[in-house]
Amino acid sequence: MERLLPVVIVLALASAYGLWYRSSRGKVKSSARAKLIALDRKTLGSELGERATLVQFSSAFCTPCRMTRTLITDVITDMPDVRHIDIDAESHLDLVRRLDIRSTPTTLFLDSSGIERGRAIGAPKRNELIEAITALKA
């Protein structure tokens, strides 16, 4: 019976972590004002949107990155003032370190002046994504 103990402990710890993982991934959180830095065309390598820009950091070993890309593209398709920039995290490590991106996909919600107002780690849900974009007024 005591041989079962390691397995039980591992599965219990992994479950606790897994529940936290499931509840935290995909949530759009507003970014702390203290950390606000304006991002521009030069750092991002692409024009900003007139009203809002969604900057997605992706990597090769990431299934939800595809889903996020498809979802954002779909949601903003009739929003000409919102742009989506997809950045390969691995080839932009300086930016990744500066913005403290730790996992993929991470999506930043920038306002019209390129300031980060929100951030979602993991694939966002459709309604929360729309809500976060709507919150970014011109």
């Binding site: 397995v7 992994a14 950091f57 070993f61 299934t63 939800p64 996992s103």
Partner: peptide, 25 residues
């Protein structure tokens, strides 16, 4: 290895999403 496999099976955990960028960094 057991924890990672369990997280994948039970929570659809994406190991590459969480680990790869940290390792690269």
């Amino acid at each position: 290895a057991l924890a990672a496999a369990f997280l994948n099976a039970a929570f659809n955990y994406c190991l590459g999403c969480e680990m790869y960028l940290l390792l690269t960094r």
